[in-house]
Design a protein around this nucleic acid. Structure first.
Lengths: 133, 133
DNA sequence: GTGACCTTAACGACGCGTAATTGTGG
DNA sequence: GCCACAATTACGCGTCGTTAAGGTCA
């Protein structure tokens, strides 16, 4: 279920070194290293070993900061992020299931419409009319 | 979607005063008062104002202790409990939706079986056979 | 009066963010 | 040699659980 290119956020494929990512989020670079060590973020690394934060990382980072500002500690944030992903997955699955239900009924109707043709009684010989009761 | 009486846990309708509830969970009574002040638990009160913990409260209490022992602070626990309820609700809704989908298709089939009777070509006059193509 | 509950406050331990230190690569 | 990164360590502050102190009701 890929989002069309032109609806995505400015996904330039850009990455940011730690100082830029920290600036974008308004926090100390060292804070980002803590988040990583606690398993909240996992930025790619450059050849030299420098962290490279993607746009997706920045989105997660902002959510982390929201939660910590609200008083959640890092272990709590880690679990909340996982649960929020789970909720998103379930919501999508639910949406899909409802859509699939409508489609299945529709398909069933179409199946009958293809296989059966309504026929008026007057067209039928007596023997058939008896079958119809 | 009420669970039948005989499938429920020993729901004796029993309630416990704070000292008993604390013993059941192996924590200090004062800890339970903290949990309540932070919005993690909301036990009923007796006429005299004493807290009365239900079996359901005890279940939640054990979950709270699991999470805090795992290093989640109380604001984190509060949000995690809410998310876990959400996940449970969504899981149930998903289950229901899938069941409803099967039932809807089945219902559609039954509808056609009631309204239509299959007729063999040989029974039909030429004019009708032409309609069937 | 004894005991269990209530509330509020103080203390110690721990987690988190900042800052400082030291080392490495371009 | 300079700058930005890396990792580790130390410090200050806030949170959490325990404990204590004082009040109320049966």
């Amino acid at each position: 279920m890929a989002v069309p290119e032109d609806q995505r956020p400015p996904s330039t494929g850009a990455t940011y070194v730690i100082s830029v990512a920290a600036d974008l989020a308004g926090v100390h670079p060292q804070t980002l290293r803590i988040y990583e060590r606690k398993g909240l973020l996992d930025p790619k690394r450059s050849r030299g070993g420098d962290r490279r934060y993607s746009d997706a990382d920045i989105v997660v980072l902002h959510r982390i900061i929201e939660l910590t500002n609200a008083g959640v500690n890092l272990e709590g944030v880690r679990r909340i992020l996982a649960l929020e992903r789970r909720v998103a997955d379930l919501s999508e699955a639910l949406e899909d299931a409802r859509e699939a239900a409508r489609a299945a009924v529709e398909q069933t109707h179409r199946q009958y419409r293809r296989d059966l043709v309504p026929i008026r009684d007057a067209h039928l010989p007596v023997v058939v009319r008896r079958i119809r009761r």
